[in-house]
Simulated scan of single mutants.
Amino acid sequence: MGDPKPLQDVLACSPLLLTPEEAATLLRIGRTTIYALMKAGDLRPVHIGRSCRLPRAELERYVRCLETPSDIAPSPTGHFGTARSSGRRIDATRRGMSSQ
């Protein structure tokens, strides 16, 4: 009692709609994370009355999106915003020098 079902059993029954708790178990993340993903719009639930369900296809879509590389590329140095922050630092130094 209370033993987790083997993954094969979960996949074998393959329901069309999953509760947030079932989706969390399948993705091996927390229930709270599922609700946060739904609130952020990353997961699109289906509402039937007051019940919230996640289609299996929606979970598969979300995982595929995680696998694809991001459109945002790092700068040649491999850091985001490095030049901008150092530029501000130089400006602050110049202002300090001119007031003395």
Rank of each mutant, 00 (worst) to 15 (best):
D3S: 09
I72L: 15
A23Y: 03
C52P: 05
E58A: 10
S51M: 08
A40P: 02
D3L: 11
P4C: 04
S99N: 11
P45A: 11
R28S: 13
T82M: 12
A24N: 07
M38C: 15
C65T: 09
Y35N: 01
R28W: 04
P6A: 11
R64A: 12
S14A: 14
L66V: 06
G30A: 10
P15W: 00
G87I: 08
G78R: 01
P45W: 04
K5F: 09
L66H: 03
Y62T: 00
R56M: 09
E22Y: 00
Y62L: 02
S14H: 07
P55D: 06
A83H: 10
L59D: 06
L59M: 07
L17Q: 00
P20I: 06
S51A: 13
H79S: 10
H79G: 08
F80W: 14
T82L: 15
P69T: 07
L66T: 09
A36N: 13
L16W: 00
A92M: 10
L43N: 00
T25K: 05
L18S: 05
F80C: 11
L18T: 05
P45L: 05
L59I: 14
M97W: 14
D91P: 03
P20C: 11
R50N: 12
E67Q: 05
V10F: 08
M38D: 08
L66R: 00
S14Y: 05
L54S: 08
L54W: 02
G30F: 00
I48K: 02
P6R: 03
A36G: 10
L54V: 15
P74E: 14
L7Y: 01
T25C: 09
G81W: 14
S99A: 14
R61C: 08
A12T: 05
P6M: 05
R89Y: 13
L16T: 05
A24D: 09
A92D: 11
T77S: 15
E60C: 10
P45C: 07
I34W: 02
E21P: 06
P69W: 04
H79F: 15
V10D: 09
E22T: 00
A83S: 13
S70W: 03
